[in-house]
Simulated assay, not measured.
Amino acid sequence: MKDFFIENRQIGPKHAPYIIAEMSANHNGDIENAFQIIEMAKRCGADAVKMQTYTADTITLNSNKEEFQIKGGLWDGQTLYDLYQSAYTPWEWHKPLFDKARATGITMFSSPFDTTAVDMLEDLNAPAYKIASFEAIDLPLIRYVAQTGKPMIISTGMANDEEIAEAIDAAKSAGCNQLAILHCVSGYPAPSSDYNLRTILDMQQRFNLITGLSDHTLDNTTAIASVALGANIIEKHVTLDRSGGGPDDSFSLEAAELKHLCDAGRICWEALGRVDYGRKSSEEGNAQFRRSLYFVKPLKVGDIITSDSIRSVRPGFGLPPKMLESIIGKTVSINVDYATPVTSEAIAK
């Protein structure tokens, strides 16, 4: 897998997971909330804040026909147009939000939903792009984003392996050479049992790309577990207040939970380490308490070492226990007391 950079942050297996705090619609129509989410993400240790760039008119049609109505789930009873009209981030906010992120010292980028969004984000010098799961089959949009030459992350919720391959081919053929994919379940929220995290391993082997997780479960367990399976990017929705009433608030992380994700995700990655059977630095002080062979009765020069005169005990200053049978029947070359370590010098040649 080929590492890549978003701004100055290297992303890949040899680096801690890249944590993306997804703001989505959780500003609830107030730019001050958006500013606070940026500050919260930085304070909690996230690497980036992501927004979404669309309007109701660029993402759907203003229609009351049945196919445009949402039935069931969090947004039951709304039309697509009404949902996106209430949830979008005004385009005139984008520059102040990017400026705020830069001043705060955290990366910001966005998911564009049409070419006009890409053009506007290019004017703001967005450092990367995210393709949302529902747009993973929009190959013309992927090609348009690829032509910017910026890093691209494609979320794969609802896409089968053939559709994922088509999205990757579209990105690469249009010039994207910094590409990652995210395993995702596009349920809001999604049960952890739907995630089948072993798919991440298969995606890495099948597509040979940096692979991560876009997590819509209600806590951090699934995301942290994905790090142990090699996820290099974690995306999670965040909010100032889960009870705030916004479209995505109910399945988003508050500050304490985001901090836990950032901390635990990095600890999990550090714990993976590398294949290493050697003694670790934290073990050095305890090595003396391993088992070894000790005399458990006094013996004089020339006495035969019997099975009841030595034992395998702690601490570890004597010969290793594996030598027990080879030592029994030999004689001692020096006088030994009770609780004396068995050494090669104490045994007659």
Rank of each mutant, 00 (worst) to 15 (best):
K2G: 04
K14E: 15
K14V: 05
H15Y: 12
A21F: 09
E22T: 07
M23V: 05
S24P: 05
S24R: 10
G29Q: 00
N33H: 14
A34Q: 10
A34Y: 13
Q36V: 05
M40C: 03
G45N: 06
M51K: 01
Q52Y: 11
T53S: 14
N64F: 06
E66P: 11
F68V: 01
D76E: 13
T79Q: 02
Y81A: 00
Y88W: 10
W91Y: 13
L97N: 06
R102K: 15
G105R: 02
T107Y: 00
T107N: 11
S110N: 11
P112S: 00
D119A: 01
D123R: 14
L124P: 05
N125E: 09
N125S: 10
P127E: 13
P127H: 02
A132G: 12
E135P: 06
D138V: 01
I142E: 14
V145Q: 14
A146C: 06
A159K: 03
E163K: 14
I168K: 06
D169Y: 09
A171Y: 10
N177K: 15
I181V: 14
C184G: 00
A190N: 02
Y195S: 05
N196H: 14
R198K: 14
D202N: 14
R206L: 07
L209N: 09
H216F: 07
L218I: 04
N220P: 00
T222L: 03
A228H: 03
L229P: 04
N232L: 03
K236L: 02
S252A: 15
A256D: 15
L258K: 11
C262N: 02
L272I: 12
R279S: 07
S281H: 13
S281L: 12
G285K: 11
N286G: 00
A287E: 08
F289A: 05
R290I: 01
Y294C: 03
P298D: 02
L299A: 06
K300L: 10
V301L: 09
G302I: 03
S307I: 08
S307M: 04
D308Q: 07
S309F: 10
G316C: 12
G316I: 01
G318W: 04
L319G: 01
P321L: 14
L324Q: 09
E325F: 08
A339R: 07
E345G: 00
A346P: 05
K349E: 12
